[in-house]
Amino acid sequence: MIKGFLMKTLFIHEKDNAYIQELKEAFNKKNISFQAIEISQLGLLTEGKETTLTTNGFSLEEFDSCFLAVGVQFTQFVEPLIDEFSQKGIYCQVKPDAYSILSNKAFQLTTLNSHKINTPNTTIFGSSYFINSSLKEFRFPLVLQIFLGYKKMQDVLVESEKSLISFVKSIKSDFDILLLQEFFEKPLDVSAVIGKEVFSVRRSWVKEKLEYLKKGATRTLSEKEQLDLIKACNAIGTEIATVKSIDGNIVSVKPFVDFSYFQEILGKNLYEKLAEFYLSKFETKGME
């Protein structure tokens, strides 16, 4: 243990992360030593039975915990990395296999659905073959999303059978998944989930522009809604996430939180909430 600190956390981030200083201050305030590293500086080397994380001169064994804040485009690196944290008993807010689910929206929905968590009615296709023969089953308007790998290629609101047929006809490029989802003309709740705490912002739907207002307002979800959000994160395997929901139906779960966005609207210091959460992990571990 480092002198004066209760625990040591490794913060793994993408290039140009804007929160390093704020997070460091918040963690240090809670007596947690904090070291940040860009994911591109990491490497995994497997030799015999052993795997080592190669970094800029420090060893993974120095750390009690890791806070991972990278996008799903890093899934192929992150999954073996989380596996290594799990093998070495280092706490990380995302569990093995979670990025595989987080990186695939359709997989998120089927996972949540199988855990009896409310999601909008959705039909998922691997190609556009049978969409036309399913037309009678759909209730419009629908959200149509197309994914290729981890990338969302299209996200449109389809208001009738006719426009769906014509849109599907116009798809020229290859895709992995096509998703048709029930649309609610209602406000969008965007929530930061940090362990068992939920911080929410409501964004109104602007019909004329067919989009949600970027700027949101403070929103307090009901206890049940909050529990559902936490349950959703657990089902996917993460304890920290941004969860979007409409009318109690979970639309998406993302593995990172835009701390400054929430702080600006809610006036709460989420960096400190995160540090408190990490400290609670240390205290729980200490009691075991």
Partner: peptide
Amino acid sequence: YFTVKVLSRENIPVPISSLAVSPQT
């Protein structure tokens, strides 16, 4: 890489293997 990593820890012999994000690493 993940396949080799997972199986190596159960004593299955594998070639030395690595995974990196950046060319320098």
